[in-house]
Measured scan of single mutants.
Amino acid sequence: MALNTPQITPTKKITVRAIGEELPRGDYQRCPQCDMLFSLPEINSHQSAYCPRCQAKIRDGRDWSLTRLAAMAFTMLLLMPFAWGEPLLHIWLLGIRIDANVMQGIWQMTKQGDAITGSMVFFCVIGAPLILVTSIAYLWFGNRLGMNLRPVLLMLERLKEWVMLDIYLVGIGVASIKVQDYAHIQAGVGLFSFVALVILTTVTLSHLNVEELWERFYPQRPATRRDEKLRVCLGCHFTGYPDQRGRCPRCHIPLRLRRRHSLQKCWAALLASIVLLLPANLLPISIIYLNGGRQEDTILSGIMSLASSNIAVAGIVFIASILVPFTKVIVMFTLLLSIHFKCQQGLRTRILLLRMVTWIGRWSMLDLFVISLTMSLINRDQILAFTMGPAAFYFGAAVILTILAVEWLDSRLLWDAHESGNARFDD
C-alpha cells in the first residue's frame, strides 16, 4: 500500500549564491595573561575582544583620537594649579581661619623630617597626573615632529594605576569627618577644581587605549598563520617573532617567553612588605597634641575612634588600611606557593584573586592621604596640633611594595603550573 505524501511548494523562490571570495581570516594573537594562541577576527570600533580561555580583555573598544586626548590633557593642565594650590577646605580653629590644600599637606610631611613619605604622596597625587598630561601632550606634538614615541607609550600603561586623584578625593571626605570634632569646616574653591580634575582624569584614563596608539604610530604586520613560536610582548602586546637582537619589532624591548626574574622580584617585594606591615600596624601612625597632652593612634585605634562619629567612614578606612593590605599579602603568598608547588586545582579562583588584588591594591594609600591633609588643617603649635607617627613611612612603603609585587608577577606562570593543553579552566 503506497502512502500519498503531499508536496510542499515554497511560496518564495530560494536563491543560492556561491561564495565568490575567501572568507576573511583572523590574525593570530597570544593572550598576555595566559599565553593562549588564538585567531582574533577583525574588530570594529566600539567592540571589545576577550581571550577565549581566561576571559582577559585583549582589545578595548573604547578609543579616543589623539586630538581629543590632547584637549583633555590641556584642560587638566589648566585645572591643576587651582586643584593643588587653592584651598580645598576652610576650618575655623580657636577663632582663626585655616586653609588646607594639597601642596601644603605634602610640605608639612616633608617639613617634619619625613621627606620619603611626603614624596610618596607627591608622586601619586601630583607627579603621576602631571606625567600623564605631559605624556599625552608629548605624543600629540611628537607625532607631528617625527619624534620617538616608544618610551612614552611604554610608560603610559604602567602609569595608570599610580594616578590616585580619586583616592585622594575620598581622603578629603575622611579628613573632614575627623577634623569636624575640633573645628567648623567649609569647602574651599580649590575643592571644585579638584573634583573637576578627578572627573576629567577618570574619563581620560578610561578612554586612553595605549594598544590602539601603538597600532597608529607603529603598525606591524600581524601573524596570519598559526605558529607556536609566536611570542607576545608584555610592553606593547604585539604578537610576532623577535628581531635579530631578540627584541620586539614594535617597542624594541627584549621579547622573552616569560617575564625575567618574575618570581624572585615578586618574592622579594612580598617578604619586604610583610616585614614592614608589622611596625606599620604596631607603631603610632598619627599623633595629636591637645592642650599640651599627647595622644597617639595606631591604624586600628584611629579607626575605632573614627567609628564613634561615623561608622560608615570608619568601615571604608578599615577596608583600605587593614583589610586590603593583608588580603593582598595572603593572596600573593598563596599564588606564589601554588606556582612553586605546581598546583593544578582552583586555577579559576587564583586568576580571579590576582585580578582582584590588581584592582584594589592602590586604595591602601588612602590613610597616607588623610594624614597629609589633616596635617595641613590642624597645626596650632602646642594648643592643638596633628602630626604623623613613625608607622606612616612603614605603611606607605608596604603598600608600594605590594603594588610592585602584583605588577611583577607574570600571570602566565600560573598556567605553566597548571596542566598543559587546557582550553578551559575551572575549579
Rank of each mutant, 00 (worst) to 15 (best):
T202I: 14
T374W: 02
L205P: 05
R231M: 05
L94R: 00
L77A: 14
L230A: 10
T349K: 14
I91N: 05
T224N: 07
G127C: 04
D426A: 13
L213R: 11
V125I: 05
Y138E: 01
P6F: 12
A385C: 10
I131Q: 00
A307L: 08
Y28K: 13
I253G: 02
S262Q: 03
A183E: 01
A314L: 07
T134H: 09
P24K: 07
Q344R: 10
P325W: 07
R231V: 08
Y241Q: 09
D60Q: 08
P87D: 06
D35P: 04
D416K: 08
D27V: 14
L89I: 15
V331N: 11
F192L: 13
L200P: 04
L208D: 14
P10N: 10
R380Q: 01
G315L: 06
N44P: 03
P87A: 06
P32H: 14
S364I: 00
L208A: 15
F141M: 06
R258C: 04
P390D: 07
W408V: 06
E22L: 09
A183C: 05
G240I: 04
A397F: 08
L79F: 15
F217K: 13
V170R: 00
S193N: 03
T358G: 11
V174S: 13
Y394E: 06
L263D: 14
C248A: 00
Q382W: 11
E22H: 11
W162G: 01
G188S: 08
T387Y: 06
G26S: 09
A100P: 09
Q104L: 08
G389W: 00
C31V: 00
R53I: 10
L290M: 09
N101W: 03
R25V: 11
A268R: 00
N44H: 11
S119K: 02
G171K: 00
C266L: 05
V179M: 03
F395D: 01
K342F: 11
L404V: 14
W267F: 07
L66Y: 15
F74N: 05
D114Q: 06
N148H: 02
S376P: 04
E407F: 13
Q55N: 09
L213C: 11
E419V: 12
S372E: 12
H418I: 10
V406D: 00
W107A: 15
D427Q: 15
I136Q: 09
L263W: 05
F333E: 08
D181Y: 04
W359Q: 12
L159N: 05
V203W: 09
V152I: 07
F341K: 09
S411P: 11
L306Y: 00
M332I: 12
M36D: 11
P81N: 11
F238D: 09
L149H: 04
R59H: 10
T5D: 14
Q7A: 15
F38Y: 15
D416W: 10
A175I: 02
T402H: 13
P32W: 14
L213D: 03
Q47L: 12
S119M: 01
A269V: 04
T224C: 07
G235S: 02
S48F: 14
L368H: 04
Q344E: 15
L366Q: 12
H340D: 05
L130N: 08
M164L: 04
D60L: 12
L283C: 04
Q108R: 03
Q186F: 07
G105N: 02
P52M: 04
V370T: 06
L373W: 03
I253A: 03
K342D: 11
N291K: 13
G240T: 07
A56M: 14
M72P: 04
P279Q: 08
L200N: 14
W267C: 14
L290P: 01
K328S: 00
V232F: 08
Q344D: 15
G421K: 10
C236S: 01
L366W: 03
H237S: 11
L337T: 12
L271F: 07
I339R: 10
S193W: 02
M388T: 04
M1E: 00
E86D: 10
